[in-house]
């Protein structure tokens, strides 16, 4: 996937995961891998520039908290602005997804989705 597109989609997914609860970086990676069945298995260090950029934009807030093991971790909390951004990104993604599906699946796809099937053009 294109790197920029990957970043946009990953930031959307990160915001989605943070919408559920506050999480730290490693937890986010694990959750991302598990839910995407390892499709989003990115180099782990690249997660942090995305998280820090979201923090800079005010979409998330970072805070430190000691884990049960005594290790201090940096947790991220989604802000109101982050929730708004997530809603926007979801909308953009829907538009993008529909456009791609239309091109790939053509009229057959539209017909099949109209009748409730998840098949791609069959």
């Amino acid at each position: 996937m294109d790197k920029k597109l990957m970043n946009i989609s990953i930031s959307m997914l990160l915001l989605r995961l943070l919408e559920e609860q506050d999480r730290y970086g490693y937890e986010l990676i694990k959750e991302l891998e598990a839910r995407s069945e390892n499709v989003f298995s990115l180099k782990e260090g690249t997660l942090y520039p995305i998280l820090h950029t979201l923090e800079l934009e005010g979409a998330v807030e970072g805070y430190e908290k000691a884990a049960e093991t005594g290790r201090t971790r940096k947790y991220y909390h989604i802000t109101k602005k982050g929730l708004k951004l997530l809603a926007e990104k979801k909308k953009e993604w829907d538009t993008y997804q529909k456009a791609v599906n239309h091109v790939i699946g053509g009229m057959e796809y539209e017909y099949s989705t109209e009748y409730g099937t998840a098949a791609w053009g069959f």
């Binding site: 180099k43 782990e44 260090g45 690249t46 942090y48 520039p49 820090h52 950029t53 923090e55 800079l56």
Partner: peptide, 17 residues
């Protein structure tokens, strides 16, 4: 190894900081 390239991560973090 899972973390990726240190220099690339640093460069991208620098953009944010």
């Amino acid at each position: 190894e899972d973390m990726g390239d240190a220099v690339e991560i640093g460069v991208r973090l620098n953009e944010a900081h």
